[in-house]
Write a protein that binds this DNA or RNA. Structure first.
Lengths: 192, 192
DNA sequence: GCAATTTTGTAACTCTAGTTCAAGAAAGGT
DNA sequence: ACCTTTCTTGAACTAGAGTTACAAAATTGC
């Protein structure tokens, strides 16, 4: 009944994600997208409507893909504090193994857009809330299991670790110095 | 011998700082600068050479002006832990009293440029290093005075608080919710 | 194979970014 | 008063952003 797309939209969103992740929203041009996705301008706009709409999809994709790894670790098994440590270590490792210094795309989006974009703001909040919720339930599990202080405020601790993770992303962007970053996990974990 | 400038360059840099602070580098247009500085395009480029050069001056100005307030608190008198608390509270208060959600311009610069701009990178590192150094010496003072554990690693704690401050800026940009942010100082301070 | 429909590639278009330039205006030294 | 220098204004310029338009091509159901 109709011609089928000559490219894989999912793969295209992945490619767009990479470009936006590296250059930010304002820093990305249609030409870069065309080059990276390997499709013509016409197909780009036909399939994705606008740069902004594509960015939204890319950010969603990032959230699904990258945040999922964090959540997976937090929702895993083993002592809660070790899971939290593994989560911090994951971010630390990602920050150090990031030659391009793209950081976390959610953090980048939060900083680039601030409160100036309802849609992006919503996506960012969802992503952060999801992380904080995973942290919180891991902490609560630890409290039930007895390896984390039962009197601690799990919500406050979760917000705090979320802050730490984002702080690490910022620091690593400015100065990806292993010596500076490596102690952060140990220090933060002392709170548990 | 020569005509004198019809505007105050210092005031112009201040105005430029505001624009860049609100919109980021890529998000700022020459027209916005012209409007905000109240001078013609010609004067702008005659006085400041380029958008990038003006941004550098604006970022330096920010560092001199805003970071100074942090340092001032840290270098003040009184028990070290109270100074650290005051510093965290300052950032928290700044984040909550920020309707535009511009956050910290140094944090924003770190995230926007990552490793892609030597000059900006250098400025950002200087600003962060300065903050970390102030944190460190405050902590060391507290250790000498006895109100902070002498066995703690002051450098690691300083890096950690720097991370926390930047994390707060990011969180506040995404969701300036007092309930979420207000507990962060208490939680972080528990490390001392 | 035909109709219907969608994709594709390319050109085109508008608008603005980022910068430069030319011509005149102010200031100071002499 | 003049000369030099620097500043100012505003137009002008190039390049590219972001998007749309269109004609040709491809696909599928029938």
């Amino acid at each position: 009944m109709a011609r089928t797309k000559g490219f894989d939209p999912d793969a295209a969103v992945d490619a767009a994600m990479d470009v936006f992740w590296s250059n930010g929203y304002a820093g990305t041009t249609p030409q870069q997208l065309v080059d990276a996705l390997g499709i013509g301008r016409g197909s780009l706009y036909n399939a994705f409507t606008s740069k902004h709409a594509l960015y939204e999809r890319a950010l969603r994709r990032y959230h699904e893909r990258e945040t999922a790894r964090l959540i997976e670790i937090l929702d895993g098994h083993g002592p809660a504090r070790e899971r939290i440590r593994a989560a911090v270590d994951l971010v630390l490792a990602a920050s150090l193994d990031d030659d391009e210094r793209r950081g976390c795309m959610v953090t980048n989006a939060a900083v680039e857009f601030g409160g100036r974009d309802e849609i992006v703001g919503h996506l960012v909040r969802r992503a952060l809330d999801r992380q904080q919720a995973a942290l919180k339930s891991t902490i609560e599990e630890g409290q039930r299991a007895g390896d984390i202080d039962r009197d601690a405020d799990a919500g406050a601790l979760a917000a705090f670790f979320l802050t730490t993770l984002n702080g690490i992303r910022v620091l690593a962007k400015a100065d990806p110095d292993p010596a500076r970053l490596s102690s952060l996990a140990d220090t933060a974990l002392r709170l548990l």
